[in-house]
Amino acid sequence: MTLAAETSAAATPRRRSAKGAGFDRAFEILCFTAATFLLTALGGLVVSLAIGGWPAFEAFGLRFFTTATWDPVRDVYGAAGAVTGTLVTSAIALLIALPLALGIAIFLVELCPPVLRRPIGTAVELLAGIPSIVYGMWGLFVFAPWFAKHVQMPIMMSAEPGSFWEKLTTGVPNGAGILTASIILAIMILPFIAATLRELMLTIPAQVRESAYGLGSTTFEVIRKVSLPYIRTGAIGAVMLGLGRALGETMAVTFIIGNAHGFPTSIFASGSTIASTIANEFAEAPPGLHSASLIALGFVLFVITFAVLALARILIGRQANL
């Protein structure tokens, strides 16, 4: 349709009457409204979160960020536990997902026989389409018991009493905790990172790679010395995108993290994230400090996620300009 409009405009320039110009103007305004509508909504969201959370910021001040007490009975709230839980689970999820995603992307772009490229690519993308709650239920009823029996118990039993490793691995042996939540998160963000990395690797000009092969490099050398450095900046952006998703993930984490307020003490301990705390308590929170503190948590999450995504955009943008 756009093409048709362009050709007709080019063919009969005189027909551009005052009426047509007026229509153009209206069209411009319409598009401008559409574009700014989202921005306005975003701004409104930030402002309303800030206003809603203000009573909590006012009541607790800096303590809201530095303490981990979350006591709805006494109306004392501190976000440090939830913020730590969010950052720790997301970081572990990234540690697990990134090598896998790199492997997937490299395999799909460089090594995969064309027959397999499509099915594998689709399978990875399908992972992204599975609803969060399904991951949560699967995690709780299938993955956690398996994980407890085959991973957690052996690790806990192998730990020497009194060692640092034992401290790091104490917990309830039913599979619910920080590490399980991180693994589920890793599976959830994997397709996003893998897909972005694949796109990035496809942007590498063929002659760059072929020159490297021409100089006698092995496949591994080409990937390590040419492909990866080429996409480095963009890859950081891709990782940030995955991180952004991990930070805000709610239902799957809520089901599997064990939901204990406060700082997580080991990788198998129960913890909480910002999103899981809000999901758990918002529906029943009475108006007042409890609600305000949950909204304030939302604001904190928004700021963290926004910072991560903004960084990702900047880095990916740089890659595109190269």
Binding site: P72, R74, N174, F255, G258, N259, A260, A285
Partner: peptide
């Protein structure tokens, strides 16, 4: 204390009865 949301001294939290 008594409330619908509690600062539990110990234990794990499951979401809902099924959790």
């Amino acid at each position: 204390g008594a409330n619908d949301a509690i600062a539990w001294p110990t234990g794990q939290g499951g979401k809902g009865n099924d959790g």
